[in-house]
Structure formats: structure tokens, C-alpha cells
């Protein structure tokens, strides 16, 4: 790629061009187009079963698109899946926590697995006020506390693309504020966030993709 003389103000970090997703023989979405520059956020709205989670799993590279292209920094994300995947966080409806390990051990193992250093673990725990729960095995936690322990991964391992599936589920007001502040900070640092939500997490100036909307 030729290097541009002047850096464009907002080269897209992630771009969908006619992206289509098929699941179980059903076309969940067709020809979705959007481009997200550093600092942008995309809010996915839609009824249950409208394909929000599938779209996020597609964007994480777990599913193959039925059509169209996904561009990461201008290059096809699926052509170099390893590079693309190491740039993203995917938080699904499952928390990916081991019940037998403590909160701190879970975070430490996940961070090391994802390639993050140990230096950010303590601040990440503090982001969601998990300091007192750090030595508690995850099997004793409530669902909201588990969600916080999973969200702490976002703060522990810096990656530019966040794919969050109902991140606010089970969170109290205080921790939802912490999550919103975390997403705002991430965007201010040049990251992007794609959030599927029923409105419990407020994003500043999001692009909205309504999966219930009439097909274009």
C-alpha cells in the first residue's frame, strides 16, 4: 500500500462492505455497510434472535461471512485471521471464567493467554472494584460479579477492537458507569467498540445498526 503524504483524519480501522451472515440456513443479515474510524462506536440494536450475537461472532472471525468483505486497516480480515484476531476482544454471553480459579487467577491466565503483560492486572481489577473479590473462587460469585471479572480482561489486555455482546447484563448502576467510562477511555485512546445492547449501556455518539430495520 502506498503511504499517504498527509495522514487522513479518520482512516477506517474496521470496515464492512456488503457483509452478509447466514446461520442455520437463514440469512440473518445481508449487505451491511459501515466503517469505523479510531474512536468510533457501533451500537447493535435488534430484537432477540435478530442476529446481534451472530454478527459479533462473525466479526470475531468465528463464523465465515456468507458474502461481502470485512476490512481491518484496509486489508481483508479473513485473509490474515491470526493478525486480525490478535487485535480484538470478544466478550460473548458466556464469561469464559473457570469456576475453580479465583478472580485474580482467571484474569492472570486470560491476560497471559491473550498476550498482555502482568503490569495491568491490578488496575484492571480496580476498574470494576474487584479488589476485595480477587482471592475469591469464581464459583462463589454472583452473575453480575462474574460479568465484572470477565470485563476486567478488556482493561487488562490492550487491544483496539472491542466486540461486546450485552456487556452491561447483570451490572449495577455503579459498575455500568465504570463500563461506560472504560469504553469512553478506550475510544479516546483510538480504539473502537461494537456493542450489542438493549439500551442498558450508553455510548457517546454511536453509529447505530438496527437489525430489525427494513432491509436496505
Amino acid at each position: 500500500m502506498p503511504a499517504p503524504d498527509a495522514t487522513p483524519p479518520a482512516a477506517p480501522l474496521l470496515e464492512a462492505a456488503g457483509l452478509a451472515c447466514r446461520r442455520g440456513g437463514r440469512l440473518l443479515l445481508e449487505a451491511v455497510d459501515w466503517r469505523l474510524a479510531p474512536g468510533d462506536a457501533l451500537l447493535l440494536k435488534g430484537a432477540n434472535g435478530s442476529g446481534k450475537s451472530s454478527l459479533l461472532r462473525l466479526l470475531a472471525g468465528f463464523l465465515r461471512p456468507a458474502g461481502g468483505r470485512l476490512l481491518h486497516g484496509g486489508r481483508d480480515a479473513f485473509a490474515d485471521l491470526a493478525r486480525y484476531r490478535s487485535a480484538l476482544h470478544h466478550l460473548g454471553y458466556q464469561d469464559a471464567l473457570k469456576p475453580a480459579l479465583t478472580v485474580a487467577e482467571n484474569l492472570e491466565a486470560a491476560a497471559a493467554l491473550l498476550g498482555g503483560g502482568p503490569g495491568r492486572l491490578a488496575p484492571a481489577l480496580e476498574t470494576f472494584a474487584l479488589g476485595e473479590l480477587a482471592a475469591t473462587p469464581v464459583r462463589f460469585l454472583s452473575s453480575g460479579q462474574r460479568r465484572r471479572a470477565a470485563l476486567a480482561r478488556l482493561a487488562a489486555v490492550p487491544r483496539p477492537i472491542w466486540l461486546l455482546d450485552e456487556p452491561g447484563i447483570g451490572l449495577d448502576r455503579h459498575n455500568r458507569d465504570a463500563l461506560e467510562a472504560l469504553i469512553d477511555r478506550h475510544r479516546a485512546e483510538g480504539g473502537i467498540a461494537l456493542v450489542a445492547s438493549h439500551g442498558d449501556v450508553a455510548l457517546a455518539r454511536p453509529l447505530v445498526l438496527d437489525l430489525d430495520g427494513p432491509p436496505a
Partner: peptide, 18 residues
């Protein structure tokens, strides 16, 4: 089985590790 059920398998796929 456990990794599949609790979502850790997804985490494994996102690791910078073949």
C-alpha cells in the same frame, strides 16, 4: 468440554498462539 461450555474456547481462538 468445560472450555466449550464456559466460553474459554473462544478466548483460546483469540490468543496469539496457533
Amino acid at each position: 468440554q468445560h472450555d466449550h461450555e464456559d466460553g474459554s474456547l473462544d478466548l483460546l481462538l483469540l490468543a496469539p498462539l496457533p
